[in-house]
Design a protein around this nucleic acid. Structure first.
Length: 295
RNA sequence: GCCGGGGUAACUCAUCGGUAGAGUGCGAUUCUGAAAAAAUCGAGGUAGUGGGUUCGACUCCCACCCCCGGCA
């Protein structure tokens, strides 16, 4: 059966995506691709709630442990690699399941985003960082006045990226940000939990992380990479680092992890809410039915 | 009991004669090579209690209650 079907399993952090995905993969002869911007990093296992070998139950997993914590990783890299992997899985007549909580990463696959062909240029960014938003807007106006209408003019990061694209490609930013034709036939399944339920899962997960050695993992990473790498800013790392630096006590660190995780989950839901094609489910059997219909 | 510091938004604190602001949290939103990031908007306060001075008090005065530190 030659096909280009792709199943997406998404939802907020701690909602049980991995468990569901494993079961579905076993049922439908599937393989799993992670869409998680933090599980990309090697050696960051406990804090990112990365699945362990044993839990994979023999189901192949991809896009986990891709780069070292002190290396950069970006959306475009994710997109390129992931598309290749999905195609390969399909070629072998298996069902690809893209599973994760990083909305933009998922969208880059589902909508086949055409990402402007310019790598981040750190030097240029640092230079532009020193300017005010108004100065950046003035510059951008000269290079690409249309861009002013499509980006958030109060968001410096967006202004800088738009300028970076104009300057390095010599073409207007506003003409480079598009959606290509979809590659895959997708079914998006979202796990929906009520707030209370999710909150409890989050608390449980944090306790488990501490028990499983989150502090030790942080110490190891700190020793090896320091606290500068971007990867060390993730939830479960920045807070424990503050604790290890005696800025806060362990209870405060745990409380902060809880708050940050809850906020993150909410942001994820805000993102997913916009996509009306997502089918929201409450349990495994609903997911199974949807997939059966889809295939 | 005495001396000092304090009681202002859910929390930590600004304001100190013309009825209050910030950061954090909370709610909503945006999102194309940093996305566990970044940005925007919003809801929250009869200023410990009671009295007095004043045209006017969160701000000055008095009493009381509570918290923190020191002395006893």
């Amino acid at each position: 059966m030659s096909h280009n079907k792709l199943i997406i399993i998404l939802g907020p952090t701690a909602s049980g995506k991995s468990d569901l995905a494993i079961k579905l993969a076993q049922k439908f002869n599937g393989e799993i691709i992670s869409a998680d911007s933090r599980q990309i990093y090697k050696e960051m296992n406990i804090g990112t709630a990365k699945i362990i070998k044993k839990e994979m139950s023999g189901v192949p997993h991809y896009m986990i442990d891709i780069v070292k914590p002190n290396q950069k990783f970006t959306l475009a890299q994710f997109q390129k690699k992931t598309i290749k992997i999905i195609k390969d899985i399909q070629k072998r007549n298996k069902l690809p399941l893209l599973v994760g909580g990083t909305g933009l990463y998922i969208q880059s696959i589902v909508d086949n985003l055409k990402i402007p062909e310019t790598k981040p240029d750190k030097k240029l960014r640092n230079k532009l960082e020193k300017l005010t938003n108004q100065e950046l807007i003035n510059k951008l106006k000269k290079l690409d006045s249309k861009a002013l209408k499509i980006i958030d003019l109060k968001n410096k990061r967006r202004l800088i990226r738009a300028l970076e694209i104009c300057l390095l490609t010599k073409k207007p930013f506003s003409e480079q940000r598009k959606k290509n034709k979809s590659i895959f036939n997708t079914l998006q399944i979202g796990i929906k939990l009520n707030t209370k339920n999710l909150e409890q899962k989050i608390i449980k997960r944090i306790e488990k992380m501490i028990k499983n050695g989150l502090i030790k993992e942080n110490k190891k990473l700190l020793k090896k990479y320091g606290d500068k790498p971007y990867s060390m800013s993730g939830i479960g790392y920045q807070e424990i680092i503050s604790y290890l630096n005696n800025k806060i006590n362990l209870d405060q660190a745990k409380e902060l992890i809880k708050i940050h995780t809850r906020q993150y989950a909410k942001r994820q839901m805000t993102w997913f809410k916009r996509d009306k094609t997502i089918k929201w489910i409450k349990n495994y059997s609903e997911a199974e039915k949807l997939i059966q219909l889809f295939l």
